[in-house]
Simulated assay, not measured.
Amino acid sequence: MELRYRLSGPQDGPLLVLGPSLGTTTHVWDPQMAELSRSWRVLRYDLPGHGASPAVKDAFSVDDLAREVLAFTGTERFAIGGVSLGGAVALAVALLAPERVSDLVLCCTSACFGVPEPWRERAARVRAEGTSWLAGLVTARWFTLGVAPELAEPVQTSLLGTDAESYALACDAIAAFDLRDRLAGVTARTLVIAGDQDPATPLEHAETLAEGIPGARLAVVAEAAHLANLERARAVSGLMSRFLGHGQGMKARREVLGDAHVDRALASVTDFTADFQDFITRYAWGEIWTRPGLDRRTRSCVTLTALVARGHLDELAMHVRAALRNGLTPDEIKEVLLQTAVYCGVPAANAAFGVAQRVLQEEN
Rank of each mutant, 00 (worst) to 15 (best):
A175D: 06
V221S: 07
A225V: 01
T162H: 00
A176W: 01
A235M: 04
V192D: 01
R234A: 14
Q197A: 15
A175S: 00
A170R: 01
Q197L: 14
A164F: 08
I193V: 15
A188H: 07
A170S: 14
T187W: 05
A216V: 11
L169Q: 00
A224W: 10
E223M: 09
L203D: 02
A225R: 13
D172L: 07
E231I: 05
I213E: 08
T208H: 10
V221L: 10
P202L: 12
D172R: 07
S237G: 15
A200H: 03
V236E: 13
L203Y: 08
A222L: 11
A235V: 15
G195Q: 08
E165N: 07
V236K: 12
S166P: 02
R217S: 10
A219I: 08
M240E: 11
L183H: 12
F243R: 14
M240A: 13
R182C: 07
S241Q: 07
E231C: 06
A175M: 06
A206K: 08
V192N: 07
I193L: 15
G185S: 09
A188D: 09
T187E: 14
E211T: 15
A170W: 01
Y167H: 05
G161T: 01
G212F: 11
R232S: 02
P202D: 03
R189I: 03
A210K: 14
E207I: 13
H226Y: 06
A173V: 02
M240L: 15
P199Y: 06
F243T: 07
L227T: 10
G185F: 03
H226I: 06
P199I: 07
V192Y: 13
G238N: 13
A206I: 06
Q197H: 15
A173R: 05
L230Y: 05
E204K: 05
D178C: 02
R234P: 00
D198I: 13
V220T: 14
D198L: 09
L230C: 06
D178P: 01
R232M: 09
S237N: 12
A170F: 01
L191T: 11
V220G: 05
L169C: 02
S237C: 10
E204A: 09
V186T: 11
A200E: 05
R232C: 03
R182W: 01
H205D: 14
P214R: 09
R189S: 03
L227H: 00
R182G: 03
R217P: 03
G161I: 03
L160I: 01
A194E: 09
R242E: 14
R189T: 15
A219T: 13
I213T: 07
L218S: 12
G215F: 04
Q197D: 10
L183T: 06
A210E: 02
A168I: 04
D172N: 08
T190V: 13
A168H: 01
L218W: 14
